[in-house]
Design a protein around this nucleic acid. Structure first.
Lengths: 203, 203
DNA sequence: TTAGATAGTAATTGATTACTATCTTTGGAA
DNA sequence: TTCCAAAGATAGTAATCAATTACTATCTAA
């Protein structure tokens, strides 16, 4: 039984709040998550949240930071452990899919932020994460190309865009069929297979 | 010069309203569009909207209907004019991209609806459009497979998922770099090229 | 010509939301 | 054990939004 103490040190409360947001975002449109809903989810009154965050926007910034740190932790580890660039690319893909499976709210939050019209810091952070991610992918693609693993005819930018799209494809599928998020890993293999065939040098 | 009459027949006003929503959605998060903003955009007071729609939800339903009708009009025509299933697949892809380019609000509306937690009719409509679209793609893939244009090793479901994802990939890219929506057609060709390489039979 | 129908206006309402001011409790250091 | 700063509770406020209402302008058909 997890002991949910009534009072918590500020640092712990902040991370619990971020987890609450991620948790709720798995089932609800991130933009519709109210401070009241977050507070209720963690057994605290709504006003208490503002002891730890200046405002809602700064809470979203904290969430985006969490995403950036934890996504790249997983993804970079996967890339580093792979023997070849091509293997790294696939490892990154599967690590990302697994990250999304365990944190279904993350892609919804990312996409929701990118949709926003207001140029908030959280939105810029989301864009920054995606660009940084794209740079990682580009590096791997270029390395694989030099090793002769990728067909020279393949455009790097297109390959990068489709890589991200192939992840997003599975996310959309899981939005359509709710419980597909659990089976996302199996589907991912099939989808990545097509992607790999699309970029690799013909044998 | 478009004559914006003060009084309009109800039918015209309804379609003008839908256009206004599509227009605003190109620049703003669909869920954040207020009835006041819609009304202002079409030079009418906020209350006037409710002369033509029971409520905001029914306006969204009308928008979804517009999307369904107009998307499939373009897509089906493209498919029918193509000589082979494989050519049809590419034609559908390019038609879809062109539809998105001329109506940038559409993908935002679609995925905004799919993100919603409330099981509204508009959300079900969005899911219906995507499923119907997927069925079209599946039919073409199966036909291409029978003609020996697609590698038998390729999983149909995966190919369908990635097809939709490859479109979504370009949409995300345009969210990231705002004015990329204009160049989406050029990028589309490169992305589709990889997709085609991924599914077609090796020569 | 005029009466009914249709479309639009202006003002208001109740609900919801992020945020805040003030009071209360708790837990750990001295 | 005592004390006090940090964490939370309580009870608000101002702003925003969809929706409604009473009223007016305009079109159309008999």
């Amino acid at each position: 039984m997890t002991m949910t103490r009534k009072k918590m040190p500020a640092k712990m409360r902040r991370s619990v709040t971020i987890e609450a947001v991620l948790d709720i975002a798995a089932r609800q449109n991130p933009r519709d998550i109210t401070t009241a809903a977050i507070a209720q989810h963690m057994n605290v009154t709504q006003g208490a949240l503002f002891r730890h965050f200046d405002n809602k926007e700064s809470l979203w910034q904290a969430v985006m930071e969490w995403i950036e740190v934890n996504l790249f932790k997983r993804v970079d580890q996967a890339a580093n452990e792979a023997p070849t660039p091509m293997a790294a690319l696939q490892a990154v893909y599967m690590a990302h899919i697994d990250f999304v499976r365990t944190h279904p709210g993350v892609p919804r939050i990312m996409f929701g932020e990118l949709q926003r019209s207001e140029n908030t810091k959280a939105k810029r952070q989301a864009g920054g994460v995606l660009k940084k991610y794209g740079a990682r992918v580009t590096t791997l693609i270029d390395a694989a190309r030099e090793k002769g693993e990728i067909d020279p005819a393949v455009d790097t930018a297109s390959a990068r865009i489709l890589f991200i799209g192939s992840i997003q494809a599975l996310v959309i599928q899981s939005l359509l069929v709710a419980k597909d998020i659990e089976n996302i890993t199996e589907k991912a293999a099939g989808v990545y297979d097509i992607y790999r065939r699309g970029i690799e040098v013909k044998r």
